[in-house]
Amino acid sequence: MLQYFLLINDSNVLEMGEKKVNSTSNFIETLNTIGYRVQSITTQNIIEKKVLNPIDAVILRVRISDLFQWTQKIISIKDVPLIWWCDSYTSDNDECKLNLGIDGMIFPQMEPAKLHWCFQLSANHHQLKTQWKKERQQLLFKLEERKWIEQAKGIISKMKNIPEAEAYDFLRKQAMNDRKRLADVAISIVKVHQLLNE
């Protein structure tokens, strides 16, 4: 559950005058009233780990042209749900981009119940995205291991003049005897083979 937000305001938007745009202070007051805590800074502030440590999510009130850059900057420090504040000043062009790096979007005139739903959906989207990233990394890791095993099988098969199925059994037995992972034994074999062939 998201509780503590960091609101990053584009300093250029704020310079246009709060009367022209929906007031940040009114929005923060609304969030505080419905049980959320908000810390507000401008884009001129330096974003550090200590600023993001207690934060559950970040609301970005920045122009759409700067949004992806900001999402990348924040994610490099802390991976939290990112929510874009969309109004006439932040969506300053008609270009609709799909890859903005955000988990949700809010509009300053949203009612409290809709803000709750938006924050819940943003948290869920972020959780799914994080899970997909982990699964992708695991699949890439397994694929890389598989490549080493296939190379080692080919080397053993050629050196011992045996079929690849037997080479795989040999590799597996060697890993069991050495009490090592199959991929680690395969990597050692391929690297030694490359070293000897240089």
Score class of each variant (00 low, 15 high):
166 E>N: 03
34 I>M: 15
88 S>V: 14
90 T>M: 08
139 L>W: 05
24 T>S: 06
158 K>D: 06
158 K>H: 03
39 Q>A: 13
83 I>G: 03
60 L>T: 11
170 F>D: 08
194 Q>R: 04
161 N>Y: 05
49 K>C: 01
139 L>E: 11
55 I>P: 05
161 N>K: 09
93 N>Y: 01
169 D>F: 14
104 G>Q: 01
68 F>I: 02
22 N>H: 14
103 D>T: 04
94 D>L: 12
89 Y>R: 06
15 E>D: 13
103 D>N: 14
21 V>H: 13
112 P>H: 05
10 D>H: 03
155 I>R: 00
16 M>T: 10
25 S>V: 09
122 S>C: 10
20 K>D: 07
179 R>P: 07
143 L>A: 12
70 W>Y: 15
73 K>E: 01
81 P>K: 08
173 K>T: 08
34 I>Y: 01
70 W>N: 09
117 W>R: 07
107 F>L: 00
76 S>G: 06
133 K>I: 05
48 E>K: 11
197 N>R: 04
114 K>M: 05
177 N>S: 14
150 E>R: 15
46 I>E: 13
74 I>E: 00
114 K>G: 03
2 L>N: 04
166 E>V: 09
147 K>C: 09
94 D>A: 10
84 W>S: 08
41 I>V: 15
49 K>I: 02
148 W>K: 12
160 K>S: 03
133 K>S: 07
144 E>Q: 15
123 A>F: 09
5 F>Q: 05
138 Q>N: 07
142 K>S: 06
59 I>T: 03
28 I>L: 09
86 C>W: 15
58 V>T: 11
150 E>P: 02
28 I>K: 12
60 L>K: 00
166 E>T: 07
37 R>T: 14
162 I>M: 00
36 Y>A: 01
40 S>M: 11
20 K>Q: 13
78 K>A: 00
58 V>W: 08
82 L>V: 03
170 F>W: 05
30 T>F: 02
25 S>L: 04
8 I>R: 04
39 Q>R: 12
101 G>V: 14
80 V>G: 02
129 K>E: 11
65 S>E: 08
23 S>L: 12
70 W>S: 12
150 E>T: 03
12 N>H: 10
83 I>N: 02
127 Q>P: 07
157 S>L: 06
3 Q>V: 12
179 R>F: 13
130 T>Y: 15
60 L>S: 00
172 R>F: 05
134 K>Y: 10
173 K>M: 06
162 I>G: 00
180 K>G: 10
101 G>W: 13
26 N>G: 07
